[in-house]
């Protein structure tokens, strides 16, 4: 993540409140690079990934969130929310890119480039 934060042109954009994302669930944020999936785990942690499974591009935001993973709704790949990587037997088969995400005062900020 540090490598991403180093980008000098990153702008942080408020996309909503942490509580707008259901526990053990996700919401989508449309972007020029396709949807971004913002997840919130049962323990209240939040993560953001590009909303596409490394397997066949399934929308991860529509999967079941358990622990700090999500199960892709299309073919059941289990993706680690912190790294975007496939886990278990599928480890090493690809990765959904991580989107920089910060929480400030209960609001979600995504790190974007441009402007």
């Amino acid at each position: 993540m540090n490598a991403l934060v180093k980008e000098p042109t990153v702008t942080w954009t408020d996309v909503g409140a942490v509580t707008d994302v259901p526990r053990r669930g996700a919401r989508r944020v449309p972007s020029p690079r396709g949807d971004i999936a913002v997840f919130r785990t049962g323990d209240g942690q939040v993560f953001a990934l590009i909303d596409a499974c490394p397997h066949k591009g399934g929308p991860l935001s529509q999967g079941i969130v358990h622990g700090s993973t999500v199960t892709c709704p299309l073919h059941g790949r289990v993706i680690d929310l912190a790294t975007g990587e496939a886990t278990g037997v599928d480890r090493g088969t690809g990765c959904a890119p991580v989107v920089p995400l910060e929480v400030r005062d209960g609001r979600l900020f995504l790190g974007l480039v441009g402007g």
Binding site: V21, V29, S31, I36, A48
Partner: peptide, 11 residues
């Protein structure tokens, strides 16, 4: 969607 469509792409 959680928010309106973003103008810029994620970093």
């Amino acid at each position: 969607p959680l928010s309106r469509r973003l103008e810029f792409a994620p970093a």
